[in-house]
Every structure is written in structure tokens, then in C-alpha cells.
Nucleic acid binder design. Sequence first.
DNA 1: CATCAGGGCCCTG
DNA 2: CAGGGCCCTGAT
Length: 328
Amino acid sequence: MAKVVNLKNKTSLTLHPKPPFPFDSSMYKPGHFPSQDTAWVKGCRWQTMRWNGQCLGLKFINAGTAGKPKINLEVYSRDKLTTDYTNSLVDEINYRYDFQADLSDFIEKFKNDEQLGPILQKWPGMRIMSPQSLYEYLIISIVLQNCAVRRSVSMMQALFESYGTLLDYDGKKFYCFWKPTVLNEVSEDELRGLKVGYRAKSLKRISGPFAKGEIDELELRNKDKEEQRKVLIDLYGVGPATVGYILFDVFKHYDELTHISPWEQKIYSKLFFNRDLSNPVSEEKLLKFFNQRFGRYKMLAVHYIWEDLFWKRKQGQGPEWLEELIGL
DNA sequence: CATCAGGGCCCTG
DNA sequence: CAGGGCCCTGAT
């Protein structure tokens, strides 16, 4: 069982995302994998975070409007935090949640687009996000591979219980990720015991370069997209699908769309071409279509459409065919 | 009970 | 560059 740490120290900070900023669609993504390090209710997101050696419990509270955004951030920690620490934390949060992004050009370009226009009206300036570090995102990607969501959730749970830290803060409990050194030192057999299957090897081999400091996420952010791609694809267990997600979510390349998985292919074929699930448009044709229509914003545009679909589903207004595809 | 596919990726030929 | 195999689970 994971150890439980009670975070008694609370620091209050204020964040100012660049307007326009719709809080809920930016801070909660029904289309993302549901990990056990977070929760959301309207106007509020809880999220654990490992930063500079400390496990933190974050609570983001909406205290503004889309036009005049303001977030009250409560940071729960075991130790008292220094100003230097909270400054670096705020920088990191701004990066991970893309708070300072200027999306005015994107909004202007597509406000009258047939599919995108209505969503931009509803959620002008919605951000992309990756609350996790690059390493943590990689772990999630590995447990996502070649299985349905239900199993991914149970693998993640098992990993958190064995190697994570359960944080107790604000009357709630969420898991916090482990340091890369932890998995680097366990045996593949031990990992297999958690029923992660052949993914045990990938989990271990991905942890290595991070444990040894061979991959520095902050440094990698300053490289160009193709250099980032090369570093990622060289990791064992990381292929084109995973790299695509990371270049977009973690490194914020709004134009990264080079691979469409079969189930995404079915969804886009239905949404844009009204094709039956059994008769999807080819990946190549879809890629060409997105490129022509959305140019350097193609993945961002797809994200808006994707999240709109999954928000509707969450509210019980999703299309029938989507349930068929997800098959939970 | 058996069989199969699943939000990939690696390795082989 | 195509295709088999991989761990395991839930669905059939």
C-alpha cells in the first residue's frame, strides 16, 4: 500500500491566465484518461504534483470570468514553501496548463468555421493541458497502450498503490506520482505482478534516462519539435501514437497531427464526413483534410472538437455511436 | 469453457 | 514495410 502523507501547510497564490479563458473546459478534459491524481467539480480542480522533490496538493478555484480570468490556487505541502519555490512552481503551472497562451489569432481565424465556430463561441480560448510532467505523461501513455480504458485505470491504480504517495489534503485523498528512480530500481517481475503485462519492460526502460538525468524536460522544451520527436521515439515502448500526444499535450505544438489511431479515425470520419463506423475515411485522407482546413492549428482544432464531443457525452447528450465505440 | 480484440509497439523476415 | 506476438481482461 502507498504511504499516506498529510499536507498541513497551505499557501495561497493567484494566477492570471491570458484572456479569454474559460475555466472549466480548460481545467477539465472528459476526453482525457481519468487518472487518480485529480478531481474536478464546476469551478474547481484538485491535482497532485511532484515538483522539485516535493509532493504537492493543488486546488485551483475559479475566481474570475472568461473575459477577466483569475484563479485562486491553494498549494498544500508538508513543509513550508519558500518564495523561490512558489515562483518556480507558478512558472511551471503556467507552462503545463498553457495559461499564458495567446489564442486570439486562432479564434479570429475559425470563429465562423462550420464545426469549430460554435465551440469557439462557447469556449473561447480553451487551453490544452498536461498537469503531469513529461515522465509522468509517458507512464500514462504506456498503460494506455493496447487495452481498453477500464484496464488502463486498474493498471494505473496498481502502480500508484505500489510506488505512489497518497496525499491527504483539503479533506480529500489523491495519489502523487513517484520519482523515476523508483521504477528504475524495481525488477521487471515485480512490475509484472501488477498485471501490466509486457508493458513492464517499457515502464522500466523509460524510467532509466529520467532517473539518470539523461533527459531533462525543461531543456527539451527549448528544442524544436523534430528534436523532441527524436528523443521520445528513441525510448523503448514509445511509438508514433504516444509521441503525437506528447508533442501536442506536453510540448504544446498545436500543429502536431501526423498519426490517427483506428478509433479516432472512426470518430473523425463520423463527425466530418458522416461515415458509418464500419466505413471510415482513410487516415491519409483525414490528415490531408485537417491540414487544409486548420493548417498550423490542426491538432488544437481537433482537440476542441474532441472535447466538445466528450463534454456532451458526460452531460448525457453524446451520440449513440460514441457509446458503441467506447464500449465501457 | 474457449476465443478474441483492445486508445501500440517491437522485432523479424 | 507487413504482420505476428505480446500480458491480461472483459465481452461474446
